[in-house]
Structure formats: C-alpha cells, structure tokens
Design a protein around this nucleic acid. Structure first.
Length: 129
DNA sequence: ACGCTGACTATTA
DNA sequence: CTAATAGCCAGCG
C-alpha cells in the first residue's frame, strides 16, 4: 500500500461527560458477537451498519485489537465482501478460521464461502438500522 | 506530533 | 478479467 495522505488530527470526539461511551471498535465487537452461528457477515456490512461503510478497514482493525477483548470475538464469521477468508492468517493458524466455519455448517471452497448470500448476515437488515 | 501501515470496498482505466 | 487510485481512521515508531 502506498502511503496515503495522513493528517492524524486529534479529532477524538468524546462525549461531554468526558468518557467515550461508544467506541467504534466496541460497536464492531457488539455486532460481531451478534452474528448467529453458522452465519457470516462482511467488514463493509458492519461498517455500513455503523454508518461508516467507507471505513471497513477499521472493522478489521477492530478485530486485531479485539484479540485482547474480554469476550471472545468470533472474527471467523467476518469475511470480506466476496465471502473470502481474508483474515484467516490472523487466527494463529491459516486453517483455523476455515475449520471453525465449516464446523458451524458453512461450506468453504478455496478459502471462499459457498452460497455466501445464503449464509450472509446483514446487521443493517437484521438489526434494522 | 508526523508518517506509514492495514483482516476493506468501490470506482476508474 | 486485472491494476491502480481513492477514501476511511486507529495504532505504532
């Protein structure tokens, strides 16, 4: 990835209370945990549900930070728009993610979910955002 | 504080 | 079909 323009401004928006009640990451965790077993979703869908569909990267990034989060985050249910297991390399073992999905009933072929539309779980639709 | 990276996606050539 | 470009924004040196 080439370097993008960076302006890491401190636009940390916080509530008047002083504490952040809703982090972007936190919302991601919530939705990911809400994904039913045997279903999958995409980074873009989650990001879109949060109103920041252009920030799908942050969703994946949230997972990375989510490794230290208390409840385990079923990140294996989060795939990219194509239904591909893009983040499988982050599961410790390159096959762990696929195995988990297959164990839940999701068919995977060549690192890609079969009948993605069938297993796809759209938070915006299900949660009526 | 600055610059680069990244588990994405959509658009354009 | 593939490749490049552009947005998004948090974390780290």
């Amino acid at each position: 990835m080439a370097a993008r323009k960076s302006s890491t401004q401190v636009l940390k928006k916080v509530n008047p209370s002083g504490k952040k009640d809703h982090d972007f990451f936190t919302q991601v965790y919530e939705i990911v945990r809400l994904v039913p077993k045997g279903r999958v979703t995409s980074y873009g869908a989650i990001a879109n549900a949060l109103g920041t569909k252009l920030s799908a990267r942050m969703v994946g990034w949230a997972m990375n930070s989510g490794h230290s989060v208390k409840p385990k985050i079923p990140a294996h249910r989060v795939l990219n728009r194509e239904g591909r297991l893009t983040g499988k390399l982050h599961f410790g073992s390159p096959t762990r993610m696929q195995e988990l999905l297959e164990k839940e009933g999701v068919k995977i072929k060549d690192d890609q979910v079969v009948d993605l539309q069938k297993y796809f779980w759209d938070p915006v639709k299900e949660l009526s955002f």
